[in-house]
Amino acid sequence: MTTLIYVPGLLSDARVWREVAEGVGGDFVIADVTTQNSITAMAESALALADGPVIPVGHSMGGRVSMEMARLAPARMAGLVLADTGHNALAEGERAKREAKVAEGRADMAAMVKAWLPPMVGASHHGNAGLMGELTDMAAACGPEVHARQIGALIGRPDAGASLGDVTCPVLLLVGDEDVWSPEPQHREIARMVSGPSDVVVVDGAGHFLPFEKPGAVVTAMTDWLAANRLG
């Protein structure tokens, strides 16, 4: 049996994937990426959640973890789903910006989340008090120490692009059309870099938190992809 391993991203927990995972169904687990100090350690922890073939399903930072899972255990990959993510190594000036966010979180986590979250969500959802409230609660609940640990992992992340050519399993890339953090062209570049068959699905009216903003669209895209590749 193939297990879908859902991997949350930065300042996220199982809530970001729960509705999608239950909608897609099948054998699944949702990883916890709040306790590890590196992307590799997160990937190792996620791989240990299941035996046999797996399909990592990663959002944002979780997409980087999923690509690392594919690097560490290529023979176990039945497929790979990457949502609103990136593959590049640390960019010039990125460390300082991320460390500044850590400092903001340590000083006042609620204020940091309030400033950080809106650009991560599609503009059409900014007026959705329920959705914004749930995302705010989830991010704030992680706290400044988890935030600092995850930012440290992202600063020290491996260059995922260096191993994408070794990915031979089917790959599905999902991105919201309003995602300004990890935009569509980034996903199309990943699709060109992998050696296996790849599909890119752009979801209208969603930003970086696509699985939370448009879970129904993600369920449909994943279900169709799983069926087309006989992975269901």
Rank of each mutant, 00 (worst) to 15 (best):
V57I: 09
A91L: 15
L72A: 10
A123N: 00
I55V: 15
R71S: 09
S45H: 14
R98E: 10
P56K: 04
P74D: 01
L82C: 14
A103W: 01
K101M: 15
I55F: 12
E99W: 02
V102Y: 05
L80M: 13
N88E: 15
V54A: 02
A78I: 01
L117V: 03
A70G: 01
G86A: 15
A75R: 15
M61N: 05
E68I: 11
H125W: 14
I55N: 03
A83Q: 08
V81W: 09
P56Y: 03
G105N: 08
G127V: 06
A100R: 04
A100L: 01
L80P: 09
R95S: 02
E104C: 03
A110M: 03
A123Y: 01
S60Y: 00
T85R: 05
P74V: 02
R71C: 11
I55P: 05
V54E: 04
V81G: 05
V65M: 03
G86F: 06
S60G: 03
L72S: 10
A75C: 03
A110K: 13
T85P: 07
P118R: 04
G127K: 04
H87E: 10
A70D: 04
A73W: 08
P56S: 11
L117M: 10
V81E: 04
H59A: 04
M69A: 07
R64G: 15
E99V: 06
S124T: 13
G105C: 09
H126L: 14
V102N: 08
M109E: 12
P118H: 10
L90A: 11
E92W: 13
S66H: 05
I55Q: 08
R71F: 12
M61H: 01
A78L: 00
E104V: 02
A103V: 11
A100T: 02
M120D: 02
G86Y: 07
S60H: 02
M67E: 14
G105S: 06
L117F: 01
G127R: 05
K101T: 13
A123I: 03
G79K: 01
G58P: 12
